[in-house]
């Protein structure tokens, strides 16, 4: 008898446990679904706006059900200004990311590994380039760019983007290199590598997640930059953001075109993210034990 009682008791307990777990799953999914909706709705709104025929994009109440059309996109592609601006941005931003990594990563490595006099001050000096609000420096930049014949040039914009992102790259990568044990390079040197080989074959691969993280962030910061593009370009080096901005006229806003151009702008960022995702997910486990 006693055995049966205890058996049924365990059974009911198990049932309770199962129910509880199911309940937790339901709650968890509800929260996640709600959050996903909050995040994805603006994107949906943008995409749906871009697919509506002209004139109906901003109608209220919104047309929830409509016949999607790629009219806006066709208009966009046929606009040579948009294609030029998009290509401009792709080239300028990519070049700036490569350049900022080429300058910033070695600088961060040196700051992390060597005894630099006044290291703290150097770091703060690098960061200080971002302390003024952009609007405060945009006019001096305009004058400097004009004097140096950099106004409305792609090279000028590349340098501008580099100056925006350099402090970020140096600071983040210095912290990253600080986290990579120096014994890794020492092991490489004992194994017969030169100091440079140690850096290239051991430290740099270990720093990949960090490098790709700052690369994607730098890309996004430069890609969405508007203010400097507005002031420092006029025709040749116009970035895509400026072109998108041009759909906001003084009298009317071309909502459909604006939405289509904005959607198109998201695409390169998403592609870049997917391409480097594997490295971002690689995490920070270095296969070494932290000294106790």
């Amino acid at each position: 008898m006693a055995t049966t009682d205890s058996d049924s008791a365990t059974a009911s307990q198990r049932l309770d446990k199962d129910t509880r777990e199911k309940l937790i799953t339901v709650v968890r999914h509800t929260i996640l679904l709600t959050w996903s909706f909050i995040v994805l709705f603006p994107l949906y709104w943008l995409a749906s706006m871009s697919l509506k025929p002209p004139g109906t994009a901003n109608s209220l109440p919104p047309d929830w059900i409509f016949l999607p059309t790629v009219y806006n996109y066709i208009q966009l592609i046929q606009d040579s200004g948009f294609v030029a601006a998009f290509a401009n941005s792709l080239i300028m931003v990519s070049a700036s990311v490569v350049l900022v990594l080429l300058i910033g990563v070695p600088a961060a490595y040196v700051l992390s590994r060597y005894d630099i006099p006044m290291e703290r001050d150097v770091l703060v000096w690098i960061l200080s380039s971002r302390m003024l609000p952009p609007i405060a420096v945009v006019l001096p930049f305009f004058i400097i760019f004009r004097e140096l014949n950099l106004f409305d040039t792609r090279i000028g914009m590349v340098l501008m983007y580099v100056s925006i992102n350099l402090s970020l790259v140096v600071w983040v990568m210095k912290a990253f290199f600080d986290g990579i044990p120096e014994t890794l390079e020492e092991a490489a040197r004992v194994d017969g590598a030169t100091q440079f080989q140690g850096f290239r074959k051991v430290v740099l691969p270990a720093a990949k997640p960090g490098i790709f993280s700052v690369a994607i962030i730098s890309f996004i910061f430069a890609w969405i930059e508007l203010l400097f593009g507005l002031v420092l370009t006029s025709f040749e080096a116009v970035p895509v953001t400026l072109f998108v901005y041009s759909f906001i006229g003084s009298r009317s806003i071309e909502w459909g075109m604006l939405a289509a151009a904005s959607t198109a702008m998201i695409v390169p960022v998403v592609i870049f993210l997917i391409a480097v995702n594997k490295y971002l997910a690689a995490g920070l486990s270095f296969g070494v034990v932290i000294k106790e």
Binding site: T183, D191, A193, P205, F286, G287
Partner: peptide, 16 residues
């Protein structure tokens, strides 16, 4: 690299 030595480190220092 010129000393023909091999070293085992406290934190192993394996190339991750």
């Amino acid at each position: 690299r010129a000393r023909d030595i091999a070293m085992v480190f406290q934190n192993y220092a394996l190339y991750p």
